[in-house]
Design a protein around this nucleic acid. Structure first.
Lengths: 226, 226
DNA sequence: TGTACATCAGTGAACGCGCGTTCACTGATGTAC
DNA sequence: TGTACATCAGTGAACGCGCGTTCACTGATGTAC
């Protein structure tokens, strides 16, 4: 309980909720160790006693889900911004890839939390994701997309739109499936990111080279189609 | 202590060591949860008391490292066998990729242990890996390659050789670096495998399609070179 | 303007749990004489 | 062939630890009269 926190005023109880999420985020960044992020450590960091956490989150798992949602939103924003600055769809995709990997490496324990953990009973029904994406917007009211599942779907949609923009340039007969290609991009970028996180001492090539190794076939395909 | 184990005879103390490794492996497969693999759970499974573990491994971390080494060997053997049955270098590479992914999905918690965990103080000096690979054989006596680090390097070398066999077919001027390409293959296959493990409920395409999405540019390049 | 009170943010102390690890030990068994 | 003994495989009981979570509570503060 390092800093003596001043108790929130009546009606402002939600302040603590935000402070908790910030504390978790900071702890993940500082310790690079999810195990270090215990209820006690969080409470201590915020300047509060452990039971107060439970006024704002049902249990630890629910709290981590809220953290994941925040991470997803930041990732989506980053990808969207990076892509917006690009000069062509294929450059936008490459830029998004670099951004994805860099985000993961800047916040490895956040990335680990969202993409490398096992969620025993998450069991989101993703079967709806594909039709929903092909339909256009993700309906916020959709019962299958709420909380961090919604946030995750929105991140995927950001990538989906970028891939779609690249693939429409290809002749219809040689145009691969957008959803499958997006999935392939995701797994490829995830591979680069997560293996670097797990094996930081391996002799990795520069990030740009690794991302380019994934992008170049599409760059070639687009060039050939022009 | 389910089965009443009969104590090994004198001089056969190493039997327990092997039994422990098997027990850990079985527990990982059955529970799909590394957290379930505690010293007590292992001892119980083997039919022995917890302290006996420490006669054979310095601590839990050393025991897990031994398990990792075994996993690496199995993976290397699987890849080598799968590739040997193929009809061409590029098919061998594709076969190896499928084998890698399938191995990971058949033993997700093994895969997680080896490739998705953070080893705080592993700190293997990989800087020697590249020159050693380019030199040919991995010297077993090399101080930097021992235990699971050696096993890991051998697995990487198996993939390296397959990639090398594909790339020599390309004209020298358009031939990419073998080491970098191998790394790219590894991260790509790892991405497919690990994301499936972390997000089993996502709507994944068939494994062959995912692997083929990585392989096809090289298939094209080889075809063009003929 | 003053006061009683419901509400709300947060506390203090404790719970049971399972973990990795340690220590001094026991008892079977191969070996030397 | 018999026996004393060193060796070796494995035991029993306990250690301290930090964890997530619970319970009944306190005390400040806004609000209604």
């Amino acid at each position: 309980m390092s800093p003596a926190r001043v108790r929130a005023r009546r009606g402002e109880g939600d302040k603590l909720r935000k402070e908790i999420l910030v504390a978790v985020s900071d702890l993940l960044d500082e310790t690079n160790d999810e195990a270090a992020v215990s209820i006690r450590a969080i409470a201590d960091r915020v300047g509060v006693t452990p039971p107060s956490i439970y006024r704002h989150f049902e249990d630890k798992e629910a709290m981590l889900a809220a953290v994941c949602a925040v991470v997803f939103v930041k990732l989506t924003d980053g990808i969207t911004e990076a892509a917006a600055a690009a000069t062509s769809p294929i450059e936008a995709l490459a830029e998004a890839g670099r951004c994805y990997v860099e985000f993961g490496l800047e916040h490895p324990e956040h990335y680990r939390l969202v993409f490398m953990r096992s969620y025993k009973d998450e069991m989101v029904d993703h079967s709806e994701l594909r039709p929903v994406l092909e339909g256009g917007e993700i309906p916020e009211s959709h019962p299958l997309f709420s909380g961090d599942a919604l946030a995750g779907s929105q991140a995927f949609k950001a990538l989906y739109d970028l891939v779609d923009a690249v693939l429409v340039a290809l002749p219809k007969r040689r145009r691969p499936d957008v959803f499958t290609t997006t999935t392939s991009m995701w797994t490829a970028m995830h591979g680069i990111t997560s293996l670097r996180i797990s094996k930081p001492d391996f002799v990795w090539p520069p990030i740009e080279d690794q991302v380019e190794a994934i992008i170049w076939p599409w760059r070639e395909a687009v060039r050939a189609a022009v």
